[in-house]
Design a protein around this nucleic acid. Structure first.
Length: 650
RNA sequence: GGGUCUGUAGCCUAGCACGGAUUAAGGUGUCGGCCUUCGAAGCCGGAGAUCGUGGGUUCAAAUCCCACCGGAUCCGCCA
């Protein structure tokens, strides 16, 4: 017998048993929702129901009596997988699985489904766009942002295996002042060829240009504000200026030549701020020279990104340029449509969007989980100079995405929650109701550095490349220490998938809503609860299987798997499809890391407790080999979901 | 000031959507064991927690509700 989801089959039997027992014993009672929970310990059975408590209240009986009567009414002979039903505690009904049958069902299902075991297909496949990473092309991807591609890639992977038609998109945010800042600096330097990894190179130009122009701006602002004698403003600007001067000192030390050159070149302009703004305006207008310049520097940066993404095997189906939506007129069209709606206002020369009015008028607040009296801030859509703002352009982009898909998932930091909400409301305002309903902001908390905040503008960051390279180097040292017998080439290859795997795992492992403090220990963990631990376990299982091929072995006898740890492994294997469905439906890729670690844990306990190849009998050995093989398969299938290599040796 | 997220042993994390078992689960660190036996990136054992605080709902609360406290973050003609 084979089944895609063995544990669910057992659960269905238990549920059916309860339903028929309730109808038989208490015909007058309405059948409550039947929740079956895992028991705290395998010795108490595998599934338990606490519905006697609820039923007892309605029937005015004692829970234990209700439980006893229900247990008596259950006809086990009607079910294949239920071995025993008993009452426990104050009124629990515990179901015990028939292990010989269940082990056979599970292990044969794993073996037969092999590479597709666990990947249960949805009944309602839809087209989904997962937009992720979308780091601005101004500086290298830093560790604060690195959770994004890892989560996004895992999400896309599980949704795809669930049967959805998934397409991954990278939104290139090349419109806006920041792009003009870096392009301005790049132009001033005479469009130099990168002398290092190109995103790193662009990042330096960005930070230095930003710093010089900020100081410039603040100095002017200070002069102006002094004449007004507004004490608070003077202090505020002074403080900001001091901060930037401190950053300038750091940068002068780190990139002295670059800093000097840019200082000289930028000082040639009377008003660099104005030059940057002009460039921004020209770019939005699609003026060819500006286009050429900004695209050139953005492309340089993107080249660097692609190298980083190749290291971690993350790819995108589509690279979407924000500027294309401006130039094509889509942004203007959206603006015009919005202007025609009753939710737009024009004040002091700027166009704004009244998000709160939409929510109120269309009664969206309860649906969006907000209190009625919570006022949603307004959103400026267009500057007085006619240029648009980021969220405005994102509205056009989002609507375009819905031309290609029914559902859109944006993996974007939670600090953008308000903007994402305003965007959603703008879609409702434009009558894209269904689309807005299917617009998901997958928010995650940033990785922070202990002590200071990461900031690309300020050049305060640890790059993702640094972390990946360090992880691979550390892994290499581990491999040399632990597996000196491998050739140099093999060691390098192992170090690569171990190091990268460790980083991927560490960034996925924690609930995305929680903030993570970056420490090297966290990402360079090669012990329990890490990718290398699971990889090692997989290699170990492979090794056993490799060595056991000499023995021609008897047919497995599933009733021999009687050790508690063996049964725990069977259950863990049987629950993999359940976990997959849950992780996919609730968009919780981190569950996979937890699951795979637990399975590895159990297998290692098993490995140390009993012998596979040298088991007491040939039959037992053969049966344990089937178990080992199933563990190997499921470890591999689970690791695949989070993009971690499952090696045969390491 | 208002919104959102978050608070579980020294440290890191799971459990919270769907309330259930007098032992709240792992890891790390710490203390002590296990390599002539299938790979020690491993395993076994000890010590270590008023689940932020205070109320409420319930037969039952880490889990639901309310208030408060701490941390993060947002409330820009930034992105």
């Amino acid at each position: 017998m084979i089944h895609g989801n063995p544990f669910d089959l057992f659960r269905q039997e238990c549920r059916a048993a309860l339903v028929s027992a309730i109808t038989k014993t208490f015909p007058s009672a309405n059948i409550p929702i039947i929740n079956l929970n895992k028991t705290p310990d395998i010795e108490l059975g595998q599934l338990a129901s606490s519905l006697s408590f609820e039923l007892a209240r309605k029937l005015d009986m004692k829970p234990s009596v209700v439980a006893e009567q229900l247990v008596e009414a259950i006809d086990k002979s009607r079910f294949d997988l239920i071995a025993k039903v008993s009452t426990a505690g104050a009124g629990y009904i515990n179901f015990y699985v028939n292990f010989p049958r269940f082990s056979q069902l599970t292990l044969e299902s794993v073996k037969n489904n092999d590479k597709s075991y666990g990947y249960i297909k949805t009944e309602k496949p839809v087209k989904i766009i997962v937009e992720h990473t979308s780091v601005n092309p101004l500086h290298p991807i830093h560790i604060g942002q690195a959770r994004n591609p890892m989560i996004g890639d895992a999400l896309a992977c599980i949704l795809k295996l669930r049967g959805h038609d998934v397409s991954t998109h990278y939104y290139i945010d090349d419109v806006g002042r920041q792009s003009s800042v870096v392009a301005y600096g790049y132009e001033k330097l005479g469009r130099p060829k990168p002398t290092e990894k190109s995103d790193l190179f662009v990042g330096k130009i960005y930070t230095v240009t930003c710093c010089i122009s900020e100081i410039n701006r603040l100095k002017k602002a200070k002069e102006q504000v002094i004449t007004t004698q507004a004490v608070d403003d003077i202090a505020k600007i002074g403080k900001e200026l001091d901060e930037w001067i401190a950053i300038a000192d750091e940068l002068k030390e780190k990139h002295s030549t670059l800093f000097e050159m840019l200082t000289i070149k930028i000082s040639e302009d009377e008003n660099p701020e104005e030059e940057i703004n002009k460039l921004n305006r020209r770019y939005e207008d699609g003026e060819p020279v500006a286009k050429q310049l900004v695209r050139e520097v953005s492309d340089l940066c993107l080249d660097g990104f692609r190298q980083t993404q190749a290291k971690i095997s993350v790819t995108y189906d589509s690279w979407d340029w924000e500027s294309d939506f401006v130039w094509s007129g889509q942004v203007t069209e959206i603006m015009n449509n919005l202007k025609a709606s009753p939710f737009i206002y024009f004040k002091n020369g700027v166009w704004g969007f009244d998000a709160d009015k939409v929510a109120k008028q269309l009664q969206l607040k309860p649906k969006l989980g907000m209190k009625e009296n919570h006022e949603i801030p307004q959103l400026t859509l267009m500057r007085a100079d006619g240029t648009t703002l980021y969220t405005t352009r994102d509205i056009a982009y989002s609507i375009w995405k819905f031309q290609c898909a029914e559902k859109v998932i944006n993996v974007i930091g939670m600090e953008q929650s308000l903007a994402q909400l305003q965007l959603k409301l703008a879609m409702y305002a434009l009558n894209y109701n269904k689309e807005a309903d299917n617009f998901v902001h997958f928010a995650y908390n940033l990785v922070a550095l202990p002590g200071y905040k990461m900031s690309s503008r300020r050049g305060h960051y640890i790059t993702f490349d640094q972390v990946l390279d360090e992880a691979v180097e550390r892994a290499y040292q581990e491999v040399c220490k632990r597996s000196p017998m491998f050739s140099e080439e093999e060691k390098r290859s192992i170090a690569n998938f171990v190091g990268i795997g460790a980083v991927r795992y560490a960034l996925i492992d924690v609930d995305p809503s929680k903030q993570v403090l970056f420490t090297w220990d966290r990402v360079l963990n090669f012990e329990t609860n890490s990718a290398p631990y699971v990889q090692y376990t997989h290699a170990r299982a492979c090794s056993i299987i490799r060595k056991a091929t000499d023995n021609t072995i008897a047919a497995p006898a599933y009733n021999l798997l009687a050790e508690k740890i063996e049964q725990e492994i069977i259950l863990q294997l049987a629950c993999f499809p359940d976990m997959f469905i849950e992780a996919t439906e609730y968009l919780k890729p981190f569950m996979i890391a937890d699951y795979v670690n637990m399975l590895a844990d159990k297998f290692n306990t098993f490995y140390n407790a009993v012998s596979v190849i040298k088991a007491e009998t040939l039959e037992l050995s053969s049966t344990r080999l089937v178990l080992t093989d199933a563990v190997r398969t499921v470890l591999r299938n689970a690791l695949a979901l989070i993009g971690v290599v499952a090696p045969e040796r390491m």
